[in-house]
Nucleic acid binder design. Structure first.
Length: 271
DNA sequence: ATGCGGACCTGTTAGC
DNA sequence: TGCTAACAGGTCCGCA
């Protein structure tokens, strides 16, 4: 689920329902997520108003009056706003219950996600402190990529997936952006030309932007009690297409592993 | 500093 | 059909 576009779509989906609302309580059914959910989350949050809902990389931040709830969806997490408290299913680990009865419910089968309470400036928290720029912001550009990558021997795919370089580029969109930029994923980051960095930065922005648009149309129903998934099948050029013909030249797409992650590229278009 | 591999978990699918 | 192994959208951490 959670590449940056889905996290952003989630943010936009929940924001209108919880901004300005006062939290009544929290219900924690499973504390063992990536890090333990605070034992007394409910008393930490109760009575506080939600000021705003912010995204930083793939982290969602619920800014409250006296601190911040940090949420990460991990590999399999999602958030829904329910009109009323419904019977919890197996993987419904945390509820944030608002006055008037709406419930923000965190569900995560694999439990790689997180729900934490941060006091003070959340951007000083170790998890957020060393994050790179937002891929859709102006700071992230070809020049930045070029300068950051000098002397780096890691594969360019690993490089753009490194949150200290740029946040929010997950496995799917790393594959897609490298295809669109015509760059082989295993290529050493430090060996890219400045033109290639320029192209790559543009494609990352483009592909994420498109996906946010698509996510907006596919995951619209955040209030649905059934939580209909209506899964989001984007038009992916290469991801999941290993062995099939390249959409540009027809050459058989190669599928390999890089950092234990599935990696697909066209041997001809990505020299 | 950089680079690598392991770790955390469950559910689904591919293969025998 | 049933069992097992591999794999899945993330990323932190410890070690060389």
């Amino acid at each position: 689920m959670p590449e940056l576009p889905e996290v952003e779509t989630t943010r936009r989906g929940i924001e209108p329902y919880i901004t300005g609302r006062v939290i009544q309580a929290a219900v924690v059914r499973q504390r063992a997520l990536r890090w333990p959910v605070p034992r007394h989350l409910s008393s930490l949050l109760a009575g506080q108003r939600v000021i705003e809902v912010v995204r930083r990389g793939k982290y969602l931040l619920l800014r409250l009056e006296g601190g911040t709830v940090l949420i990460h969806l991990g590999m399999s997490g999602h958030l829904r706003v329910l009109k009323k408290e419904l019977p919890a299913q197996k993987h419904d680990h945390v509820d944030i219950v608002f006055e008037h009865g709406d419930v923000l419910r965190f569900t995560d089968p694999r439990r790689f996600g997180a729900v934490l309470w941060l006091k003070g400036d959340p951007f000083h928290h170790p998890l957020l402190l060393h994050l790179g720029p937002e891929p859709l912001g102006d700071q992230f550009c070809g020049k930045y990529l070029f300068e950051r990558s000098r002397g780096r021997k890691v594969a360019v795919k690993s490089f753009i997936m490194d949150g200290k370089v740029v946040v929010g580029v997950g496995n799917i969109y790393a594959n897609e952006a490298l295809f669109l930029a015509g760059i082989r994923p295993a290529r050493g980051a430090g060996r890219l030309s400045s033109d290639q960095c320029e192209q790559l930065a543009l494609e990352i922005k483009w592909v994420l932007g498109q996906a946010i648009k698509a996510g907006g149309t596919t995951l619209r129903d955040f209030r649905s009690a059934e939580g209909q998934t209506g899964y989001f099948q984007q038009e992916l050029m290469v991801y999941g297409q290993g062995g099939k013909p390249c959409p540009q030249c027809g050459t058989r797409l190669k599928e390999t592993r890089l950092d234990q992650r599935s990696t697909v590229y066209c041997p001809r278009c990505q020299p």
